[in-house]
Write a protein that binds this DNA or RNA. Structure first.
Lengths: 112, 112
DNA sequence: TTGACTTACCTAAGTTTCTTATGTATCATT
DNA sequence: AATGATACATAAGAAACTTAGGTAAGTCAA
């Protein structure tokens, strides 16, 4: 597990990325998918995810569809048109940021 | 400029990395160095940096040395022994995290 | 010489975003 | 029948910033 500060700020982008590859997903599925894909190194808590999903919906980036599975309810999220475009922006911003950070971290000692 | 959420959580590691390459630096110098190295894409504000430097000092990772430049005072920070070891840990954790994030962001659509 | 900008330190209130804790309920397995 | 997984949700508190402000010295052009 990474220390939690690192993950801060990347959650919404991760969600948007997953939804841009999967058409529709429900909350719990997202937590499991991220856990699987990262071999448990990134674990999204429900306390962080659900409020974040609601915020993305309020911003008009996600739409929801409720499905009944037996007697339980599942809430599927998918990207709106606006969500698709914002997703691409956020993904390239984060990719760019990762490259910048990698550059910083790879610096060699300066001559002094 | 990257949206500020992204930078959250990476500040201390950036500081530790710069100090592990430069022996000693003062606060303002750190802000300028990061700005230069990232072509202005990452700009550390003083409101974020100074409290962070104080925290690192309180944790025993940094030591300070005050220098008089004319009538002004400059506060140089350098890594303690503990700071050097923590710096290496934080740097490799962040590098690892970047690789994991890159993997997530590079995922192709799953077959459905 | 004064006004604007840069250098250089600092703190504090407010915001955002998460963690931690809790609640509810269904379903599967032992 | 109990445990663990599935699946949703909220709310109080913590952490790490942003924004805004304060102080003061040095530099440079008009």
């Amino acid at each position: 597990m990474y220390s939690s500060e690192l993950i801060k700020g990347t959650l919404k982008t991760i969600v948007l990325k997953l939804l841009s590859e999967n058409q529709e997903m429900y909350g719990y599925e997202i937590t499991q998918k991220v856990k699987d894909l990262t071999a448990g190194k990134i674990q999204i808590t429900e306390g962080a995810l659900y409020p974040s999903l609601h915020a993305l919906e309020n911003e008009g980036l996600l739409s929801t569809q409720t499905m009944n599975i037996g007697k339980r309810v599942r809430k599927y999220y998918s990207l709106t048109k606006k969500g698709k475009s914002v997703a691409q922006e956020k993904i390239s911003e984060l990719t760019d940021f990762m490259n910048t950070m990698r550059f910083l971290l790879d610096l060699k000692p300066s001559a002094q």
